[in-house]
Amino acid sequence: MDTASPVRRGRGVSGNVPNRFDPYATEPFDDGWGSVEEERLRPPAVATTLTPERARSALSWNDSPDLGFDRSLNPYRGCEHGCCYCYARPSHAFVGLSPGLDFETRLFFKPDMAAILARELSRPGYAPRPVALGANTDPYQPAERRLGITRALLEVLERFGHPLTIVTKGAGIARDLDLLRRLAERDLVRVWISVTTLDSALARGMEPRAATPARRLDAIRVLNAGGVPAGALLAPMIPGLNDAELERILEAGVAAGATHAGWGLLRLPGELRGLFTEWLRQHQPERARHVLSLIREVRGGDLNDSRFGQRFSGQGPYAAMIGQRFRVAAKRLGVPERLAPLALHHFAVPDFAVPDDARSSARSDGQMTLF
């Protein structure tokens, strides 16, 4: 990608980077008509496409000691929010696409996921533990308004009495307040709203199609007022870019009613190193060198450290300082250090589970029907 490329309005990154699994790479060639230079200076708008994907299973499993869950649900592949720092971007290479612009414009959804989940939860010997919704890409990205797959999953989890956690930047989560309230009444749900900055201009550059910071704080307020425990997730904290706001973000979250809070350090796996570096040079040219220097400082000299125990919190004095600042601010604001576990005893397979031939299908109005 040309480092002199202009910002592509409404998108997180300017273009695509090569897929690391593709044995062939392409590059633009000027045929003499000046079309390459014209497109570089005035990149055309790129529409978002949605493609159905048949899910083999609903639950994804992990054994990472860094995560507080061992299973997750990801109804969408790719994310239109377009966050320049999204650690999930490299996963788009697994389907033969680029972690760059493809990740935020060529999306996949799983229309039959709710029915598959119901069958998996009905299997003999299934042992419930909290399932994370939104561990990879956002379950409340713009497509959810039309497709309703996340809501269909919530309906299944409610019927089975299964505990869950949700991480999102989408203010659209408030549309499901009715379901979330019923789950919360049985201590089955906990929500984390990601708030990375209070600066709307910075947010517009980093997360161009996510809800504004003010709307995310409103979502925390609405959920908690409706009886749904919602907290603020200050992640990622990017050294030299948004980490100076840490205390102010936490204060705003608590003022909105946040019952819990957490933080995490920027991660730059795979192609994300180059994508984020390019974004910095385009959007924050005067700070780019300093930010990259601080990232290397907290990552042992590299731009990423994937080791367990290090990847979320970093290492060295600067990373330790961010962690200490969060702990001091959380204590001052009365944010609990530990959270009570979600309930497991409500789990039960309903008398009528899901027939073998059941499939979720899209209605004419774009919503999903479960059975």
Rank of each mutant, 00 (worst) to 15 (best):
H92K: 15
F109R: 06
C84I: 06
E120F: 06
V95E: 11
L59C: 03
A93G: 10
D102W: 02
S64T: 08
S64W: 04
L117Y: 13
L101K: 01
P99E: 05
L73V: 12
S60Y: 04
Y87N: 07
L121F: 02
L121C: 08
S91D: 08
A118L: 09
C86D: 13
K110H: 09
F103V: 00
C84Y: 03
S60F: 07
L97E: 15
R89Q: 08
F69S: 12
R123A: 12
L121I: 02
Y87S: 10
H92L: 15
D63F: 13
L101M: 03
L67Y: 14
G96E: 14
P99C: 09
N74A: 15
F69Q: 09
A127V: 14
P99Q: 05
F108V: 05
S98W: 13
A55R: 06
L117P: 13
L107M: 09
D66T: 15
Y76P: 06
Y76V: 03
R106G: 01
D70G: 15
D112H: 13
R119F: 00
F109K: 04
H92M: 15
E120I: 04
H81G: 10
A118K: 05
L107T: 01
V95K: 03
H92E: 13
D70Q: 11
A58E: 04
Y87C: 08
S91K: 14
E120P: 08
C83Q: 09
I116F: 06
V95P: 03
S64H: 08
R89H: 06
G100E: 08
R71K: 10
K110Y: 04
S60C: 10
A55G: 08
F108K: 12
P65R: 15
A58V: 03
R56W: 04
D112S: 13
A58S: 09
L101C: 02
N62Q: 15
H81R: 12
A114P: 05
A114E: 08
D102T: 00
A58Y: 01
R77N: 06
N62R: 15
A58G: 11
E104T: 00
G68F: 10
P65E: 02
R77T: 13
A88S: 14
I116G: 07
A114D: 09
H92C: 14
D102L: 00
P90I: 07
L117I: 12
A88F: 05
L97T: 00
R119Q: 00
D112G: 09
A93K: 06
Y87E: 11
R106M: 05
S57L: 00
D102E: 03
N74V: 07
L101N: 02
E120G: 07
F108E: 10
P75R: 06
R56G: 07
E120D: 09
A55C: 09
H81V: 07
D66V: 15
P99R: 04
H92P: 01
